[in-house]
């Protein structure tokens, strides 16, 4: 017994080092799998609060850009509205609360990164604004990510620039669908895999979200095809997609809550 205690005392530095190193390795490994990093995330009071204070100062510097983005989006929506083919008057809804399938919350980006292999975004809306895990996040130009962790006031978004991110996507004109991933290289590009070899694709085609997942509504823009390669053995395409969103420069985002998600999820559970 005496010897064990002596050994512990003699090697206390090394043992402390080993314990702390293993602890941080444990955190690291947890952070590499989706939805597992429980303790270490920036959606907490200290880091969220600090980023919030900094953001309150910083936001004045890009008001001009934000205005331009807003104007462009308004412009796009107006042109969609005016060019609608069936000019029907919008029917008056009896109870607008019950009819809405998607509830959209506006949020501000507090922190964004794009130089790591696993990037996260922190936004200033949390549980008290009705944000829960697995909601989709979009900007005016396209998909940004999926809510991954929430606290009372802040939440963390798993950016599409994250090697764990999987988004269900499809070709805009043909409905062939696949999975959008990121290989960790350039923040301008993402990779679309598992598109059927039968699909007729060409460079410049638009990629949008498919309605297959309950996270994003159908038809949200993602990017355009820059190059593609057919994998002969599996008969699927590997497509390089240039994102419409500038992931390095983000101001305001929208969180999309699908009201029917629980219903669809319970149906899917019945199937399994």
């Amino acid at each position: 017994m005496q010897q064990i205690v002596n050994f512990l005392i003699r090697n206390k530095n090394f043992l402390l080092f080993l314990t702390l190193f293993c602890l941080s390795l444990f955190f690291t490994i947890q952070s590499h799998s989706y939805h597992k990093s429980k303790f270490i995330n920036s959606a907490n009071v200290i880091s969220g609060g600090t980023y919030n204070v900094m953001n309150n100062i910083n936001q004045y510097f890009n008001l001009k850009d934000e205005n331009r983005i807003l104007l462009n989006e308004n412009n796009r929506l107006k042109s969609l509205l005016f060019n609608q083919q069936t000019q029907t008057t919008i029917p008056v809804e009896i109870d607008s609360l019950l009819e809405k399938r998607y509830v959209v919350t506006a949020a501000k980006v507090l922190k964004n990164s794009y130089s790591f292999t696993n990037n996260y975004i922190t936004i200033n809306k949390g549980e008290r604004d009705g944000i829960i895990e697995d909601l989709g996040v979009v900007s005016s130009l396209g998909v940004i990510g999926i809510i991954d962790k929430t606290s009372t006031k802040y939440s963390r978004v798993l950016s599409i620039l994250n090697s764990n991110s999987r988004v269900n996507a499809q070709l805009k004109n043909t409905n062939h669908f696949g999975t959008l991933k990121w290989n960790g290289q350039s923040p301008k590009n993402a990779q679309l895999t598992d598109i059927q070899g039968l699909a007729n694709i060409s460079i410049g085609d638009t990629i949008v979200t498919s309605g297959n997942s309950i996270i994003f509504p159908k038809g949200i823009l993602i990017g355009a095809i820059t190059s593609f390669k057919l994998i002969e053995t599996e008969d699927v395409y590997n497509i390089n997609v240039e994102l419409f969103n500038d992931m390095t420069n983000m101001g305001h985002v929208h969180v999309i809550n699908n009201k029917d998600s629980n219903e669809i999820l319970s149906l899917n559970e019945l199937n399994e």
Binding site: L23, I40, R156
Partner: peptide
């Protein structure tokens, strides 16, 4: 020190591991 930086950067325990090793 490393853990605090990790909190802010959402990087798991990467910075903590590196800091502990160099400190040792």
């Amino acid at each position: 020190l490393g853990l605090f930086v990790d909190f802010f950067l959402d990087s798991g325990g990467v910075n903590a591991a590196a800091c502990v090793t160099v400190a040792y």
